[in-house]
């Protein structure tokens, strides 16, 4: 038996201050947890914890305000960008971000998100695209892939009846008011690191007052996809990324020199 003396060891990885020290209600292997951590790390690294107000939405992340350790408000389903607008306009020196699912942001809240992007609202949006309505038990979302089975498309999404997935990043990137729009995936460590950089860029956009920023994070919902976390990550890489290509869809020229 060798006694390990950890006193002299250097801390290289620890709990971000901006993440509350509580356990979450997320299912095992769900990428909501990863996204929370990335946002918290970025807030910490940028020293923004004392200046940030988060806006939670309706979906599995409704209780995200319990998991971040700074001020939060909670919006009605889909209305987070409008609520964030009210907060930001009254507190322009604060960093304001929403954290929304795909059902929340691009189905019921499609109007609010497009309006906020069009206005160039100086807020940041973390958009969790898991191709279904996780919280209500896995129904079809606007982002559900063609042929994908959900509880409300039991034979697979029929594009003749229900159309095609909405490509939110591509859509919002067409707005002049949007300054940073990127899509990333959370299926492996390399992509998670890339996601973190995009989140950093999005918050840098807001800090610089450049207008609307959004990072779409392709996410897994192992529970409603009926897959193990590992299989869900693999499915996301193989099936979701071809439909929702990762990349930068809009980068304001003032950001192009920025290295994060």
């Amino acid at each position: 038996m060798v006694a390990l003396d950890i006193k002299d060891m250097e801390v290289v990885y620890q709990h971000p201050d901006s993440l509350a020290n509580v356990s979450t209600h997320y299912c095992p292997g769900c990428t909501h947890g990863i996204a929370h951590r990335l946002v918290a790390e970025v807030i910490d690294e940028m020293g923004l914890a004392e200046h940030t107000i988060g806006v939670a939405s309706v979906g599995c992340s409704a209780f995200s305000y319990n998991y971040f350790d700074f001020d939060f408000v909670q919006a009605p389903h889909g209305r987070a960008p409008a609520m964030a607008t009210g907060v930001k306009r009254c507190k322009p020196d604060r960093i304001v971000f929403t954290y929304q699912g795909d059902g929340d942001m691009i189905s019921i809240g499609a109007g609010e998100i497009i309006a906020a992007a069009g206005r160039g609202e100086n807020i940041t949006v973390i958009f969790m695209n898991n191709a279904n309505y996780g919280m209500t038990g896995g129904q079809m979302a606007p982002t559900t892939l063609p042929g994908m089975k959900t509880t409300s498309s039991p034979n697979g999404r029929d594009v003749e009846q229900t159309g095609y997935p909405i490509l939110a990043s591509e859509l919002l990137a067409t707005q002049e008011g949007a300054s940073f729009i990127a899509r990333r995936s959370l299926h492996d460590p390399k992509n998670i690191r890339m996601a973190k950089k995009a989140i950093r860029m999005a918050f840098e956009t807001q800090v610089r007052g450049l207008g609307f920023s959004m990072v779409e994070l392709l996410s897994t919902c192992p529970t409603n996809w009926h897959m193990t976390p590992a299989n869900a990550a693999k499915w996301m890489e193989e099936k979701m990324i071809p439909y929702f290509p990762i990349g930068d869809y809009k980068v304001h020229p003032a950001l192009s020199e920025l290295k994060v």
Binding site: V55, V73, A75, P76, R79, A82, M83, A84, T85, G86, V87, K88, R89, C90, G111, E112, A115
Partner: peptide, 10 residues
């Protein structure tokens, strides 16, 4: 919808 939720945030 937007207006009342902006008021909510404010």
């Amino acid at each position: 919808l937007g207006a009342i939720n902006m008021v909510y945030g404010a």
